[in-house]
Design a protein around this nucleic acid. Structure first.
Lengths: 202, 202
DNA sequence: CTGCATAAGTTTCTCCTGTAAACATGGAGG
DNA sequence: CCTCCATGTTTACAGGAGAAACTTATGCAG
């Protein structure tokens, strides 16, 4: 009973606790049918308690998705900050970070792009998604300035790059990247094909 | 009461009717929370009747997904058979057919790649998905033979092409292809970038 | 220090879903 | 014609979303 979070009030920071529990279960239970009541149960509160912090189940889902975008952005930024020599290598690293994130958090990643996480409802979710996308966009713009990427419309590079990364991530967590169809290392292979189309020097 | 389907027996072909109803609702209600009882209701039977034709709700979902892959394959094949001059143009057409299918059937498309449509459970679903993917693969192989596509591992082209198309489709139906970020025609723009990396002559 | 207003949690209730079991029916084959 | 079985229907039960009423413990006013 001192510093950390010894439930100074009824529960303490239940909102945060609920989110943590949900993220845990999302990460653990592979593909879990999200249930508010089970989140409450595992957090140790009554099934109605979450409604004091989230209007409904989807509001919690949107918050989880928002956090997912933030974390994904952190992962990608970190991968880009490894001091890799070329912009192309940095793009490759960021892409693989994104796909790795999806594979380690399939439930969360699916949620982030599901219709439950409706970005037209929650501006902060929309902003988080766009900000993470902006990381990619920034890398592409930089690469174009330094002459790595072809001088086509940056929006075309962005759409292509984003779609490629997202598509690989989705296919990976759907277990559809079978070796007999797409080879043993589909992710770098596919990214290389795309990068050949994006880069000036190939 | 004559030719079409005047319920000659208890209902007639209830299995088919349930599937049709579900596909209808999936196409109509944009993003609809699938409910067996509502499918039964709209089909005009009791809520337990579907269980005579599908072990559980997920079995119906998998069947819907399977049909989705078949239809998607038909759409892509049709687009490729328009007599377009180059293999590149045919790839572009097939890709746009896929993305168009997703936009016209967002619910079905999401289902096809959701964890509800578990391809490790139902071999016929898995086969349907792989067969549709095979259409793309066939096009790539042909394009490589006729010298349109670069002589890299075809599996790399396949992974890149598939991911690109699927990624664009998912982003499109998630309303994340905003004009201010990816331009006004992101789909052909992105596909062109990829194709520049796939094709010999650019 | 006392006591109240209020945020945060709990109980209870209603409606809905998935699914199982028991019951009904009507068409096909002996 | 009669019986069987596939294909329905009814009934029942567990579990989830969410609303409403009730409870409790803080923070603050006096």
């Amino acid at each position: 009973m001192s510093e950390t979070k010894d439930r100074p009030y009824h529960h303490g920071d239940l909102r945060r606790a609920l989110i943590d529990t949900a993220l845990d279960m999302l990460a653990t239970d592979q593909n879990w049918a999200f249930t508010l009541r089970e989140v409450a149960r595992r957090t140790g509160v009554s099934h109605a308690a979450p409604y004091k912090h989230f209007r409904d189940r989807e509001m919690l889902l949107r918050e989880l998705a928002r956090i997912g975008f933030v974390r994904l952005g952190e992962n990608m930024t970190e991968a880009m900050s490894l001091g890799l020599p070329s912009t192309r290598a940095q793009f490759m690293a960021a892409a693989q970070a994104c796909i790795g994130f999806a594979c380690q958090n399939p439930g969360l990643y699916r949620l982030m792009f599901s219709s439950d996480a409706d970005k037209t409802i929650d501006p902060s979710l929309h902003d988080a998604a766009m900000k993470t996308f902006g990381i990619l966009l920034g890398l592409l713009e930089r690469g174009q300035r330094d002459g790595s990427f072809r001088p086509v419309a940056v929006s075309a590079l962005a759409a292509a790059g984003w779609a490629q990364v997202h598509g690989l991530a989705m296919l990976a967590i759907s277990h559809q990247l079978l070796e007999e169809k797409v080879g043993s290392t589909p992710v770098p292979a596919a990214l290389d094909v795309l990068l050949d189309g994006m880069c000036c020097t190939d």
